[in-house]
Design a protein around this nucleic acid. Sequence first.
DNA 1: CTGAAAGCGCTTACAG
DNA 2: CTGAAAGCGCTTACAG
Lengths: 357, 357
Amino acid sequence: MKKNNAKAAAGVKEIARLAQVSIATVDRVIHNREGVSEKTKAKIQAIIDKLGYQPNVLAQRLALAARGTINLAVLLPVISPETEFWQAPKDGINKAAGEIRQYGVNVTYFYFDQNDESTFEKQVKKIIKARPQGILLTPTFPDPALQLMEHSRREGIPYVLINTDIPGYDAMCYIGPEIFHSGYLAAQLINYCVTGDKKVVIAKIAREIDNNYAILRKEEGFRAYFKDHGLPNGLLTLDSKQTEYAVASRKLAKLIRQEPGIGAIFVTNSRVSLVARYLEAAGRKDIILVGYDFTTDNVQHLKAGNIDFLICEKPQEQGYRGIMTLFQHLVYSNAIEKNYLMPIDIITRENYRFYRN
Amino acid sequence: MKKNNAKAAAGVKEIARLAQVSIATVDRVIHNREGVSEKTKAKIQAIIDKLGYQPNVLAQRLALAARGTINLAVLLPVISPETEFWQAPKDGINKAAGEIRQYGVNVTYFYFDQNDESTFEKQVKKIIKARPQGILLTPTFPDPALQLMEHSRREGIPYVLINTDIPGYDAMCYIGPEIFHSGYLAAQLINYCVTGDKKVVIAKIAREIDNNYAILRKEEGFRAYFKDHGLPNGLLTLDSKQTEYAVASRKLAKLIRQEPGIGAIFVTNSRVSLVARYLEAAGRKDIILVGYDFTTDNVQHLKAGNIDFLICEKPQEQGYRGIMTLFQHLVYSNAIEKNYLMPIDIITRENYRFYRN
DNA sequence: CTGAAAGCGCTTACAG
DNA sequence: CTGAAAGCGCTTACAG
C-alpha cells in the first residue's frame, strides 16, 4: 500500500513564512519578475525548489478572473447540409468556449463560404480589424489565410490552424491529421479487402479539386501506398467538380460500365455518401467503399452496409483543443505545441456506435 | 459576426444584491439546503433563473480546498512484463491523481496478482478496512469483487469498474468497452481480409480461460458475427493455459500443420504477440493476425507486419475517467453515468503512430 | 527593492 | 430563518 502523495502541498504563504518575506515577493520570484534583490531571490528560490512548489491552478485562474476579457476569433466555413462536417469542430469550439467563458473569454465566429474565396478574404479583413487576442482558423484558401497568419505573427497574436495545414509554411500551430498518412491508411484498408485482380478507383468530388490541398495530399498518400506495396490491377480516377448527386452518379455509372472489375472506391472527402447512394441504388454491394467523416449521411450508409470504412480524425476535439491551446497560451503563457497530430480513426459498421468525435 | 456571450456572468454577490439578502442565503438556495423561508427562496430562485446563473467552478473548488482530504482506493493487477497492459490505466489514474491532488485527493493503490485470487481477496479486505471515500477497481475475480461492491453499496461508497464489467450485475458505474462488440468487430475485420475458402482460428492464451469473462465474451461476439454473416470454411480453436512462448508456439505449430488453409487468427487478448512471434519465425506472413492492446511488443509486431490489426479501448482514458468520475461525484455531487462505453479503436501499421491511448 | 491589503467567487462555521 | 466574516491560494495595484 503506497501513498501517492503525503503532506498537503505548500503554498506561497508557507514559502513566505520560511523565507521571512512577504507573499508579494514570493510571487515575484515565482514569475521571474523584476525588482527582487539577487540575495532574496536566491533564498526564496531555494525554498521553492526544496518544497517542490506547484502553484494551485484554481487559485491562479480565479485571481486572474479580475483581468479583462480575452477575445478569440474563429474563422470557419458556414455550416450547410453540404458542409455538415464543420458542425463537429464548431461543437468542440462551443464546448471549450462554455468552459472558459467564466474566465472572461469571448469567442466570436467569422464564417466564409467554402465556394467563394472572396468571402474568406472579407472575413480576414474583419478579423484584423477586430484585433482579437487569438485566432483559430482553417486555411481553406491558402493565400488569404497566409495573409492573416503573417499579420498575426507581426502583431504577436497567436493563432491555431485546424483540420488542414498549409504545406511548406511553418505555421505557429497545427492541430489535425497527418493528411498524407490518412490517404495511405485508406489504401492499406482497401488492399486488405480486395484481391489483386481488381481495379481501384480514387474519386474526388469537390467544387475546388485543383487547389484543395487536403484532397490532393490524401490522393498522394493513397497512391504512395500502392507504389510501396504493389499495385492492384489498375488505379482509376473519377473527378467531379459538381457535387450534385445527379451529376456525380452519372459519371460513376459510366466509369463502372466502362471498367469491369472495380473492387473498391476511395472517396477523398465526406462526399462518400453520394457514391454510397449510387452503389446502393445499383445494387453493387460487392464494391468496397472507403471515405471520410462521421456525418449523418455517412453513418447511415455505414450502418446500411453501403460504406465499409469511414476515416475520421476527431474534428470536435480539434476545435476544442484549438481554443484551449489559445486560452492556455494567453492566460498561463503555456508554450504552444507546434504540431498536434490527431489520431486517424477507422470506423466500421461494427464500432461506429461507440465512436466519439 | 455573432457574439457568443455578452455580459460577464453574474455571481452570488449580484444575486444577493438583487434579492436584498446575504450571499449565505443565496448559497443555501443554490444548494437546496434547509433553513430558508419559502418566500425568500422563491424570490432568490426567480433571480437565479432569470440570470441563468452558472456557478464559477474555480471558486467552488478553491473554497472546497479547505475541506479535508478525500481518499480513493484503486484495485489493479500488479504490473509485470506479462501484464504490461495495466500500465496504461495506471498512467491515466496517475494523471488524474496529479490533477486533483491539489484539491486534497489522495489515491492509494492496492495490487493483486492476476494469477492468484487469494491476493485479490486480501486486498479487498484491506480496502474495506481503509475506509476510502471512493473505489476504482477491475473485477478480475468476480466473487470477491462483488463482495467489495456490495459492501460499498451498503456503506454508500461510490465505486467505478474499469476494463471489464460483471455480467448480470447492476454495477454502479462501468467504464470500458462493450466486450461482445469488440469480438464482433474483430470478426468483421477478418471477414474483410479472408476469402471464403479459408479457416479461421480463435486463440485463447491465458492462465485462467474458463472464468475469464472478457475472453469468453469476446469469443461469443466473434462467433456471433460469423453466425450472422456466414461462416468461413471452418472455425478452429486454440487454447493454451500456459502463456510461455515455448508452449503456445508448439500448440500453434501443431494446429497449423494439421489444418491447412488457415487464413486468419484471432487472439482474444494481448498475448497476440506470442502468435506474431511464431508466425514471423515460421515465415507465415499470409495469415491475418488480429489481437488486443497497444503494448510495446504488440506495436513492434504491428510495425513489422506480423500483426495486422490491434483492437484497443483506450485503457489510459479508462483510468483517468474513472478517477475523475469519483472525484466529481464526491466533490460536486455530480451524478455518476452508469455506463461509459469506450470506443473500440482499430490500429494498423499505418495509423498506430498517431494513436493516443 | 519590499510589503500590506484588497480582491477573484464561492463555502462554511458561527452568531444571532 | 438570516447575515457578517473568514478563508481557499493566488495576483495585483499601491504605498513606501
